[in-house]
Design a protein around this nucleic acid. Sequence first.
DNA 1: CGCAAAATCCGAAACGTTTTGGAAAAACGA
DNA 2: TCGTTTTTCCAAAACGTTTCGGATTTTGCG
Lengths: 338, 338
Amino acid sequence: MTTIKDIAKAAGVSVTTVSRALNGYSDVSEKTRKKIMDIAKQLNYSPNTLARSLVMNKSKTIGLLVSGMTRSAVKDNFTFEVMTGVNDYIAKTDYDVILFNTNSTKQREKTYSQLCRERRVDGVILQGIKTDDPYLTEVVESDIPCVLIDIPIQSDRVGYVTTDNVHGAKKAVQHLLELGHRHIAMMNGHDYAFVSKQRLQGFYEAMDEANVPVQKEWIVNGEFSEEIAEARAYELFTKHQHITAIFCASDLMALGVMKALKQLGLRVPEDVSIVGYDDILLASYVSPALTTVAQNKFQMGYEAASMLIDMLEGNEAKVVTLRTQLVVRESTAEVKKG
Amino acid sequence: MTTIKDIAKAAGVSVTTVSRALNGYSDVSEKTRKKIMDIAKQLNYSPNTLARSLVMNKSKTIGLLVSGMTRSAVKDNFTFEVMTGVNDYIAKTDYDVILFNTNSTKQREKTYSQLCRERRVDGVILQGIKTDDPYLTEVVESDIPCVLIDIPIQSDRVGYVTTDNVHGAKKAVQHLLELGHRHIAMMNGHDYAFVSKQRLQGFYEAMDEANVPVQKEWIVNGEFSEEIAEARAYELFTKHQHITAIFCASDLMALGVMKALKQLGLRVPEDVSIVGYDDILLASYVSPALTTVAQNKFQMGYEAASMLIDMLEGNEAKVVTLRTQLVVRESTAEVKKG
DNA sequence: CGCAAAATCCGAAACGTTTTGGAAAAACGA
DNA sequence: TCGTTTTTCCAAAACGTTTCGGATTTTGCG
């Protein structure tokens, strides 16, 4: 592997000059620059980023810390879409991304910030970790610039991008209310997700504004899991037969709920209306197609990457909130009279 | 950021001793080792992998070069699944993965092997690049250990993992033949994919063994794209009304074909049977559910990572071929009499 | 031509590790 | 006690860059 020294030797100049020539500094004559360039090309030279990073004290890599890269998560390719967004932005810069996954054996031994510090990443994007994750605070409190996805923590070194969850949820519930539903349940995620709290709040706001009382026992947690949501829904709908509609905090859980309803012999949307959240790919393919609140996952990743790079260039940490959109499909209908 | 020197100073020993203590060498007394460990913990020390990599001449990172991380590829999360497999295996090792994506602006300027050499990755996994990609040969001819996915090139430094494409395709077509179909078309990918050639061969083998003549004009290329496949299928089925079944080299193209058929007023499977390839998530959710040849994408990634790490430990490059499985759903039926 | 200014170049230190070859200290056996 | 072995430690070089401060050469101008 050819180094800067080899080039220097071949060109009859010092390594300093080679370095400065290759990096486009002004104090090297056009003639020697050309000679150095030619030799570099001829010797098939590639700079050693490790050495460069070591002395420059910046690695030009960002860490991408995701939790959703599991075998079971292919249905809910939320993670993949934000990764694509991140990747898309980063591809336009001179950074590269290094992938860390939580829920690995490695992560049991090393904390997130250890991983980041060891690899000397310049910044990190966090997605999909719970708000009660002990390691979350650690990385946030470290001096590594980071941007969080769907976790509202901010300082001069940490920003976040999220969507207008309360408004999104509100729109979903208002849609149900407009269809005449008054007995509305909610399948929420879990208490350790910011978005769950927000969506719950949206639920309440919509109900309150419509003067419809909220039945607390109709609000259950599905842990963002299709299976758990199915089980919880099964209990819920056997116990409370008045429910005519349910708002789910994720499409995946909505799918679980649909399965439960089918088992119970209840039809969607004739007997009960369902609206989900996320607009995952499957939402438009299941039957009946799922009415849901769409959020642009790709853009979330893209914005996160953009913000992080901005921060690395010296700009301030921000918070960006993306709009959501209610997309009405076939899983919601007017409430039956009676 | 605390370094090994800081620890040495604090412990009153040399950096050599600190290094050896931290790395578990035998020639340091238990007493000083303990002292060093304690100080390291107390100072919140993280080793600088960059410096280590530089001197050790290995970075403990592998490059993951994928092409399918595009916004439009969410439907066909092939890429994501193999990434998950790769990640799953790597998580158990002390390697990390750095993500390169082709079809970026960066890649226009730098070749794959340049990217790899600059970052000093120890090995690389390639997925989704075409066989005529000029950069493919470059990385294969470089001395970087690599494993290819679905590209049959082998040397002492490069292995690959693939599936039994000809057998898989054969099973698919035999399934159609057993249902009585004799007028079978094929929607292939493109000429620059190894799998296309293999699946075409499987198609021929099945037809030949059944003594059913192959109509060459019934074999068209859909470029692995849903839209293009739809257009090609539209032409095909308007021109040749005898066709009663079609084998598609990917599920995504099968979806396109289904759309074309719907436009033409042809029912699946009553009028024409379809079998796809891949078993993407959507396959079981579309209506009618798609009969297809399933390949374990997760395992492909897992095996690729496993092989690469093996190679980095000194073992030989291999080739592993995974089994496929025909999963019969609703899109195939017995041919109509008449 | 001579001198100041501008343009080019270079030596050496630094980044944080690992490793080699050997030195010092401790333990041991007689 | 002394010599020998074993244990424990260390100084220095090396990895491939960048950069500081200064040295050398060229150019410009009167």
